[in-house]
Nucleic acid binder design. Structure first.
Length: 422
RNA sequence: GGAGGAAUGGCAGAGUGGUCGAAUGCGGCAGUCUUGAAAACUGUUGAGGGUCACACCUCCGGGGGUUCGAAUCCCUCUUCCUCCGCCA
């Protein structure tokens, strides 16, 4: 959520930069400013009314104490009207504030100045490409065929016990999966991240904190009986760890990593290009999360990009990095780079990581602040990225490392798997 | 799941109807002393809104209520602790 004070002071700039997302926010911004003015006027009126009745109450107390009950009772009568006024003012104030909040929830983050204009993913800007696409043998298969051939992932079993999009990993498939998780976590720890094990269910307040609620409610699985949500990403519990905190400057930066399963409803997305591991309702992911000093957040962002690059290069997977255009950058993000691995057998790129700087957008909702060197409280910047999302990395490995007589295991993973071939 | 107790500032902990945004201790910050540091001493130290700055307003787990007035009384929710039951 953008800060009202920021909108007020940078009105034209906010409108201009939101236009990079291909939206005309001028009316919304005007409305925010008007609503905010109204809200402050009501607040002042309410404050004055309360001040008056506070003063009267104090006087009444004194009168009672000095035994002048009659005078006190006269004053009491005067408070009735004030009470009525403040009640009404309070109601209008709440209504106005709710209206303002509702509008603010609808305004996406202001993109970073480097974000290119664009309307769809075809306008994303490729900024880096690395690794050679292997030449596969004539009988090369897509990963869902390989999974069946080597009996390492069973999609039908998942259908039986849960439904589509809940694969069952078996034997070496399960071990490879576990190896990847351990390898990613170790790489992250080596880079200075602290490992966390996080809850897989979160409450409503957490959903609001990172921005999944109220807008994207339909993307999360909801447990009605307990009013909890299954996490769509470790970002939600991981970032909400710091909700409401007022940190000292010396506590920054905070860098954490965690492995969690992720649950996404992905309503309506069925078809050829979501086959196999390409899109699932449950998948595993290792996430990196940072809470940063605003002055350092873009350094941190670059560091996260280099870190993910390093992992992909060790795995020797061909990948590219896209800078997302205004139309594709997510609601809460100011700048997002996507990593994609080339799936040789499918002849297409698969997104395996998304690294974002949210600047103060999440921190404002989370009330995540720090005390700066001047002793002033200031919002932190939050960032996160996948390192990495498992299924598509697995798809990439299976497809790119396949040979006529089996699938090679990337060298760095062998110590984790305990075998070098499937 | 049943019975009881509790929730106060960064932490510990007092406060049971007005003078309480809140004693005291620890911690933090600044200063004195010191070559420097420690110790000691002195001062200072919650958050949000509002204002040019003051004033002023809100916040004692969340929400609601009683009262002229609530940290304090009532209702409700959440969380924690103790005991019992169940259990990986």
């Amino acid at each position: 959520m953008l800060q009202v004070a920021y909108i007020r002071e940078n009105k034209d700039d906010v409108i201009k930069r939101l236009s990079i997302r291909n939206i005309d926010a001028s009316q919304m911004i005007e409305d925010v400013i008007t609503l905010d003015e109204d809200r402050r006027k009501l607040q002042t009126q309410l404050d004055n009314t309360l001040a008056e009745s506070n003063a009267l109450s104090k006087e009444i107390g004194n009168l009672f104490k000095t035994g002048r009950a009659e005078e006190a009772n006269t004053l009491k009568a005067k408070t009735t009207q004030l009470k009525e006024d403040s009640k009404q003012l309070n109601e209008s104030l709440n209504a106005k504030a709710a209206e303002l909040d509702e509008l603010l929830y609808k305004i996406p983050n202001v993109p970073h100045e480097s974000v290119p204009f664009g309307t769809t993913e075809s306008d994303n800007e490729e900024i880096h490409r690395e690794g050679d696409v292997p030449k596969l043998h004539a009988n090369a298969l897509p990963h869902w065929e390989l999974a069946k051939k080597y009996d390492i992932i069973d999609f039908e079993l998942g259908n039986k016990i849960t439904g589509a999009g809940f694969p069952v990993y078996k034997g070496k498939g399960a071990r490879l999966q576990r190896a990847l998780i351990a390898y990613f976590l170790d790489k992250n720890i080596e880079a200075g991240y602290t490992e966390y094990q996080l809850p897989h269910l979160v409450n409503e307040a957490s959903g609001f904190g990172t921005g999944q609620l109220p807008d994207k409610e339909g993307q999360m699985y909801h447990i009605g009986a307990d009013n909890l949500y299954l996490i769509p990403t470790a970002e939600v519990p991981g970032t909400n760890l710091f909700r409401g905190d007022l940190l000292s400057e010396s506590e920054l930066p905070i860098s954490i990593t965690g492995y969690t399963p992720c649950f996404r409803r992905e309503a309506g997305s069925y078809g050829a290009h979501v086959r196999g591991l390409n899109r699932l309702h449950q998948f595993d992911k290792v996430e990196i999360i940072r809470v940063e000093h605003p002055e350092n957040s873009y350094n941190a962002f670059e560091g996260m990009i280099d870190h993910v690059k390093g992992i992909l290069e060790e795995l020797k997977l061909p990948y590219r990095i896209l800078k997302l255009c205004g139309g594709d950058v997510t609601f809460a993000s100011a700048l997002t780079y996507d990593f994609e691995v080339y799936s040789t057998a499918q002849e297409r790129w698969l997104e395996i990581s998304s690294v974002s700087n949210f600047e103060t957008f999440q921190a404002n909702r989370l009330k995540l602040r720090f005390k700066n060197s001047d002793g002033k409280t200031q919002l932190c910047h939050t960032l996160n990225g996948s390192s990495l999302a498992l299924p598509r990395v697995l798809a990439g490995i299976l497809e790119n490392y396949q040979t006529e007589d089996g699938i090679q295991i990337p060298e760095v993973l062998i110590p984790y798997t305990g075998f070098d071939k499937i």
